[in-house]
Design a protein around this nucleic acid. Structure first.
Lengths: 118, 118
DNA sequence: CGGGATCCCTTCGGATACTG
DNA sequence: CAGTATCCGAAGGGATCCCG
């Protein structure tokens, strides 16, 4: 990401308007949990319980809300297997997978910048 | 970002733990306004009023809160010129500028994925 | 097991008024 | 101009109970 920094800045400057690409992405990846759910699913389809366990257990309601929003925006699909006990599997769509670049940049930045709070 | 997608996914999968890089980044870029303020400052130092006007005018309180948080995390610096009327300039630090890669990925993704809500 | 429903507390963010 | 202070409504998110 150091290769063409100037070009990046130029395009970012040109995108400073309402409804730009950055804002649309933020509308999808809104909030901490949403982003972490996507990261979790990047490594493959997951069941509800797996996602919940991986996320330091926020309440079921929070996860459900976020999953529904992602489904609505066609970032993930929800498949119900009518067994007993029931099994529900969430999986990224093509659009969902294409978020990997963003998540990767976030991972790299976070690793290179340890928290610095007095 | 298409060059080494497999490697990205491998590293993202390996980072699925609490306090990973992704979570640290989310702690800095928390919420819509924070990200948009950083985007705004990528094109150069800005005054309080300029930032406010560029952001579709959320309340002064919201902007002030976000600016203080970013300053605390050493993403931006705040310089006060004791003139009359006063002038306060915000500017990205080196750490702040290094967020450009993330913002750029968000811009590209958003441009390629128009909102799709029924 | 994977929710839906409900309750409730906290935080976010907008509006307004005032100050150095 | 760039805040600070205060009030307030909306939304986020946790806890609990129940159901198919």
């Amino acid at each position: 990401m150091e290769t063409n920094g100037a070009e990046q800045l130029k395009r970012l400057a040109a995108a400073r308007r309402r409804g730009c690409g950055v804002e649309r992405t933020l509308a999808v990846l809104d909030g901490k949990w949403t982003t972490l759910i996507v990261r979790e699913l990047l490594s493959g389809p997951k069941r509800f319980g797996e996602i919940r366990a991986a996320l330091d257990s926020p309440s079921a309601k929070t996860i459900t809300d976020r999953l529904r929003a992602l489904e609505h925006q066609r970032i993930i699909t929800r498949t119900v297997y009518p067994e007993i006990p029931p099994r529900v599997v969430y999986e990224l769509t093509g659009d969902g997978h294409s978020l990997a670049g963003i998540l990767y940049e976030m991972l790299i930045w976070g690793e290179e910048h340890p928290v610095s709070e007095p």
